[in-house]
Design a protein around this nucleic acid. Structure first.
Lengths: 523, 523
DNA sequence: TTATTCGCACCTAGGTGGGAATTT
DNA sequence: AAATTCCCACCTAGGTGCGAATAA
């Protein structure tokens, strides 16, 4: 499908033409900032702050503004704009800003049975453990990893739309301290970009399609251009964001060029996968992120030269780095023992634990074994747990960056050295306990007492997020939205990739990354 | 959208995933041959036959078989097949064969106002004048030119599906005589391939979308593999085919994965563009077709090297060849004078006329001027006219091939020589008469007495095709379906491309191509 | 200094016809 | 002899991060 008044096929047109129902976008005008109560995580940040003015940021600055509804340039008839520059955004419109605290919800009884699963969970977690960064450019950049969602519990005959938006996680602007390889709060958030909702171009779906196919958001692009006329999502660089998936039940009378202007008015449900939180950047900050992107994105294969990596080039290079990273910061053991650290000392201790099996190690084969992963007897959901754990991620990440934030040429040696930490018996023990877990084909719910999967979204049937509790620890929205999970450590795989089979390592396990660094890791 | 049980993305998946509603295909099982009464065109063919057995072909062999309805492997619920090999053909099914004589119709009152326009008409006509060939391969080959259709007269709120099928033009098998560069009948048609209907992947459309956008069938692929599991249309090599476009009005209760099993049962209308007739081949036969494909298909740019073309490389190379070809065989003058030649002698005479402006020359800028083109006072429709003219195309084509079917290295010289034929005053005269023509923006119908546009499909509101009459000459279905138009000569453009501005040429205009050849065109 | 932009080389993915090899 | 198949070089189209240049 190309607009009749256009002779040549523009890249944008292709995006639209070659997808069935063109990618549609809804522009949110009166976007409010995302009000998030400052919690422990913010304190963690300030711990590392070098900039004194950050102290100015406080909760009272944050206002929730969901009631303004402005509609400008609303197309007259069907919402299809005739504007030449806007031709690809066929169904662009304006809706009031939804607040993430308010939105994750389900206002439709039938949709309460609907569940969503993040197919690319494993990869997202790898990135999340390093602090995912997404490049945004003027012309628009794809997301990598891709959001690929599968659904269950939908009605086969009903029609649905699937939408994506990306909301700010907090009211902060960040900067990256290269010398210490960590993110610091750099001040209050910039004025929010025009909020947009991206309608999956394959919409509408029947429930039957949703159950059999995976909805991939590979086409969506992120931009920092406020004036973007294409169907791209506009973000602010150096800000943190949380993608959200919306499942909207469409009535039979719904117009074909789907034109959703107000999610609140629709029968819809919102799914949030905390492991997909990312920081928008115009250039990568964390070199580990760069490396992981290069090694996992096929389009970046051209940068997988041996000049960056002296050994382990053919396999395991990424995994090794990740493995090490996760290894040192996994709070796995702390959670398994029910001892939830609530202060920084405990966090640092947990991050320094060396006997805990690296999440990546346990997870590597998980994607082949079916989903969701369940673990009976846990007192709180994975999403809740992950949110809590995220509250301490910044600290752990800092330690990790101290350890790994080194010149690129040092990576191989570092990898080798850190790979020789103790991973010994614990992984095997977890594997043994995992024998009780059954992985059904597909991801149909098990009759287990509690779903235990970070790939399950935050259930909107739960109380408001601000009142969600995880075990004995209460979670703030800030913790929820800025989460970086170490959840993968709680997914003991039933089988291990040969490369990650438990083995004896040389170094003492009680050593913290800081210790390792102070001892001179560089050969 | 990718099937959930598939980890890697196959090329097929991409086809489906990256289009909104996946390309859908309906398989016709009990396909009947297309019964077409033998007409003058067949006699033309037999004139050139070298194979005596072709005489065995007669009408009594042809049977119409539209009543058999076989349904095999019908998916249980929504028509989506779980078959792994069939995963892309989500909505494949079986329908009874439609006969082209029966199908071009309109069984819906509202659809009688719906009109279709072939956006790529100009290019199609260039190919048609040479005798279009389409490569078919085991893995599937795209069509070039692409079928790009725009619609008018549809209801903005109603939903529609647009489909494509390709039906045999006659009951013959052809072969190409290289030494005389012409197509000959080589016998009776092979057993027909499984007939399939390709649902445009962007379906469903709203009328609003159809009016504003162009429906492009660029994704459809042709194959000679009877066992094809992908969404490709299966054809027999060395057979002639006519693509057809079907516009189906969808009720609001229509299932989302559109599953049309019987076009007769739908509210639908069929459009046929005679200039899109082609011969399926596994390798190009006519070198002029090869050249035109190379010069007009961007993907074949790699073959546009100077070794094939010594001059005019940057511009006009194709046009020059085509111009010459069309120049010599345009029946323009004969039709404009109302003198319709009905025997070979008259045809040969018309083909040899040198003063007639080449269609390409007149048409080059036509696409920029809006549609449809109308010319008041003509007693029959363009489609009818074109069908008649087609009856004599084979002969003209033969002459053209004698003239141009030469070693590739000879082309440049030939181009230069033939480009220097008389195109003089006639084009200017036509341009002058064209001043009375108004081109409305878009292609809304003018209140003219008669639509006069080959880009208008055969109107299915007309009587059955077999009884259509064109002026004083009656047309057989054979003439309709195997038509090759010279209609472009009847589209006097309002402005001329500088390259094709009328100019004086050196050679005498009264010379026929055969004469030119006998005189030794090679320098 | 820090952040952003832009051209670039290098990929993926796949659409061309050529031409040798193979089949019919 | 004619038709088909297969691999190939060479394209289009566009998704990567790099690094120099530029901007804030």
């Amino acid at each position: 499908m190309t607009p009749p008044d256009c002779e040549a096929i523009s890249p944008l047109e292709k995006l639209v033409v070659r997808t069935t129902s063109p990618g549609q976008l809804i522009e949110v005008v009166s976007s409010s900032t995302c009000s998030v109560t400052k919690g422990p995580i913010s304190d963690d940040f300030t711990l590392e702050e070098e900039d004194a003015k950050v102290a100015d940021i406080s909760d009272e600055d944050i206002s929730i503004n969901t009631e303004h509804i402005k509609r400008e340039d609303e197309p007259s008839s069907s919402g299809i704009s005739g504007d030449k520059n806007d031709q690809a955004c066929h169904n662009s419109g304006k809706v009031k800003q939804e607040n993430p605290q308010v939105l994750p919800r389900c206002n439709c009884e039938e949709l309460k049975r609907a569940d969503a699963y993040l197919e690319t969970k494993d990869l997202w977690e790898k990135f999340h453990e390093l602090g995912t960064e997404m490049i945004i450019t003027k012309s628009g950049r794809r997301m990598f990893p891709t959001l690929r969602i599968s659904f269950s519990g939908v009605d086969a005959q009903t029609k649905y739309a699937v939408l994506l938006d990306i909301v700010p996680v907090d009211n902060k602007r960040y900067r990256y301290a290269y010398h210490r390889s960590s993110w610091l709060v750099a001040g209050k958030a910039d004025p929010p970009s025009p909020a947009r909702i991206y309608l999956h171009p394959d919409s509408p779906f029947t429930g039957d399609q949703l159950k059999k196919q995976v909805v991939s958001f590979e086409k969506v692009k992120l931009t920092n251009n406020d004036m973007d006329k294409q169907c791209h999502i506009i973000l602010n660089s150096m800000h943190k964001y949380q993608p959200r998936i919306h499942l909207v039940k469409l009535g039979s009378d719904h117009p074909n060029p789907i034109h959703i202007t107000d999610l609140e008015a629709e029968q819809s449900r919102t799914y949030i996968f905390p492991e997909t939180v990312f920081t928008a950047v115009t250039a990568y900050q964390n070199q580990l992120i760069t490396k992981l992107k290069i090694d996992s994105n096929p389009f970046a294969k051209g940068f997988r030269d041996s000049s960056r990596l002296s050994d382990l080039e053919s396999r395991g290079s990424v995994e090794t780095l990740l493995r090490e990273h996760a290894f040192r910061h996994s709070p796995f053991r702390a959670f398994m023992s029910g001892d939830i650290p609530s202060d920084q000392a405990a966090l640092a201790q947990a991050a320094a634990l060396g006997r805990v099996p690296p999440p990546t190690e346990l997870l590597l084969m998980a994607s082949q074994a079916g989903n969701p992963w369940k673990m009976p007897g846990m007192p709180f959901s994975m999403a809740e747990l992950s949110s809590f754990m995220n509250a301490h991620q910044q600290q752990a990440n800092h330690l990790a960056n101290l350890y790994f934030g080194l010149p690129r040429t040092m990576f191989p040696q570092l990898s080798t050295v850190s790979a020789s930490s103790t991973v010994t018996g614990t992984a095997a023990a977890v594997a043994a306990s995992a024998e009780n877990i059954r992985n059904p084909p597909g991801h149909l719910p098990l009759p287990a007492a509690l779903q235990f999967s970070s790939s399950r979204p935050i259930q909107t049937t739960l109380p408001p997020i601000s009142s969600i509790t995880a075990g004995s620890s209460s979670l703030t929205p800030s913790q929820l939205y800025s989460s970086r999970l170490h959840l993968s450590s709680l997914y003991p795989g039933l089988k291990f990739h040969p490369y990650f089979r438990p083995r004896l390592l040389q170094n003492s396990s009680s050593k913290s990354p800081l210790d390792a660094e102070s001892e001179g890791i560089l050969p």
